[in-house]
Nucleic acid binder design. Sequence first.
DNA 1: GAGCACTGC
Length: 863
Amino acid sequence: MSVLPRISYPPELPVSAARDEIADAIRDHQVVIVAGATGSGKTTQLPKICLELGRESIGHTQPRRIAARTIAERIAEEVGVELGDLVGYQVRFTDKASAATRIKLMTDGILLNELSHDRMLSRYDTIILDEAHERSLTIDFLLGYLKRLLPRRPDLKVIVTSATIDPESFARHFASADGTPAPVLEVSGRTYPVEIRYRPLVAEVDEEGEGREDRDLFDGILAGLDELAGEAPGDVLVFLSGENEIRDAEDAIRARNLPGTEVLPLYGRLSAAEQHRIFDTSRAPGIRRRVVLATNVAETSITVPGIKYVVDGGTARISRYGARSKVQRLPIEPVSQASANQRAGRAGRTSDGIAIRLYSEEDYEKRPAYTDPEILRTGLSAVLLQMLDLDLGDIADFPFLQPPDPRGIRDGRELLRELGALTADGGLSRTGRDLARLPIDPRFGRMVLESKRNGVAREVLAIVAGLSIQDPRERPLEKREQADQSHARFADPTSDFLSLLNLWNHLEQRQKELSSSAFRRLCRAEFLNYLRVREWQDVYRQLERLARRIGIPAGEPKVDPDGIHRSLLSGLLSQIGVLDQRSAASGRDKGRRSAEFVGARGVKFAVFPGSALAKRPPSAVMAAELVETSRLFARTVAAIDVAWAERLAGDLVKRNYAEPHWEAKQGAAVGFETVTLFGVPLVTRRRVQWSRVEPAVAREMLLQHALVDQEWPPHLDRSRDPAFDFERANTRLLRELGELEERTRRRDILSGSEAVLGFFDARIPADVTTVRGFETWWNAARKEAPSLLTLGRTDVLEEDEDVPDVQQFPTTWHTDDQRLSLRYRFEPGAEDDGVTVEVPLPLLLASPRPGSTGWCPGSARSS
DNA sequence: GAGCACTGC
């Protein structure tokens, strides 16, 4: 054992006082939870305690790169050693750890990555998982992995630290075999009291009991500032949802012309210089207070100095994966209680503070305690890929703190299959193994693999690296048009991907010609964030190295737009859209709304207004990303030719689904195949029945598939059967579902579901034996009978609502000639075991939502 | 006609 330097503990830190207690707990238990508020000193002192306990190799993870670096620097300084020696750190592009390193700070992503070549984490005897309450995808995965690893590594100690919110959940997660939870040690923080004042925007009901008067958000902010002007001097931090609100608030405050007040915006896409003004605490003459208008950056990443007051607008944009649209959404939502408290806490860093909440206390009390962890809010393809690569077995058995939605898992698997990452039995294909080696979104990784075939690896690597980072193009508030003009020099009228490549080539060229300080100046003059440009180049170099390792050398520069787009398409099969002629025509009439495209699963989206393609919409596009903000937008798009795309997509689909799964059932083949339908839903995967099967078998099979896949098979309804009483069947179904609503306390079960189900007879004509033939038949059938139900949604429960007590999908179903039974299971711990809904067959219909396009043979509207 | 924040051999 090496000689330890003298270890001392700053006496002013609360954690120092609890040192012995913490040391005892770590010595006596394999897992210890340390809950401590900001300023407790846990982050810097825990590794020192471990060192004193004789732990030889301590891995200490942080969610952010900056934190990993600065904490390592601070510990090294406190212990009095050179950084990189006893204390080191490793983040994405920097490794400052050596053989002598016994305390290694790193991002949690680095630790996750080390698993791929060290499944037992054998180089560590102690792991400190810091800031676990942030519950990133990586943290949740590591928590599950460590739980499984602990019995096989009895010598391994794990310390999980969290803010004071809900440490018990971690303690329960790491309970010993007999159910005893891991010990929780609470360390007090070192913050000052913050007075909470509720100033809701909805004014109280007046004396007559009526005349509710609403103030808008900006009046609320101004009133808050007025109120705080009467308090002791101090800077104010205002939390808002995004750039728009910040700009409007800034206008409102300036219009009021408050004396001695300086207003500073703060959000991610601001230029580095504008962000830096926050840290410059010197003031112009006559300025008495600063008002910082910020997004959530100020809640987690950036600590604004000198804040005494907080005004909390109460909302934020929260990224959520839309299970139905398969698209990432950015809705503005009320923040959780934990988040509101975090925001308020920002007022108590240096002295007593006041936080004004622009909502009522009742509103606060009704909010969820915590923000949903990322694993419940995001696409899971990358996690699934990692798990498959690590051979972790069935994801359903993995000990997640909170298991992800089964639908999300299925979607993630579907995407991996679309990319050709899976074999028939669900394991990783060669493509999948290669994808797992690339630290980027699987879609982007797939583009890189395809680029080799087209000889454009260099170009695709540059584009993909650019798509992976935050956009380096800055748009300062005052000079937005100037910035847009500067960026427009690189615009390719047919492809934002090529625009990105043009910018990349420009930067590479100029960097060669210029000194590093001149290059930095150039970036500033051209409205490019230098740090992000560097990040882009770093990611490129990293990807280039890794791609070479899996047999894809970058190669010489090549001008081949078609080859580039062919490569990109391989990752974007389900991100293609064709121009919706009808909406295009009506858009022209109205003259305002941008043209809409129809994508996979029938989703409609528009090209993002900032795109070079927004002005003149092409007949078809492929998009790197679909994001729903106020509408569904495609960001970073390329114009493509429909025939070209269809042909290529067909080839790719054949390659990606190279090993279709076949199953013989009573003489009929059931295939998993891909149907590309341009003009209708496009590239998607569905099960196609190739030939006639026994009706009973078909019914069971199709029912199951419909329920599992949310895609009702395009078979017949009974709309032309004069004997069938739709009205009665409708009424019956609505009543059944109404009862379900009651029992699950859900009012809106039906509101999201349009036409559900049609009776099927499995009567595909015998001469239909191919996918192409099926499409032809199906399209003709649709023309002939436009009232045929085309798409049945069977996810009767709305996706976005919080339904803690009932699983969102029927877990079992059963059918006979008379009825369909759906069994919904309650989650463990609910009073009841579950609920069954029975629906008569054959069935029907029904959208209770006004304005729905769902055709409904039995509804009042159709008669 | 318009954008929360992070991260990865």
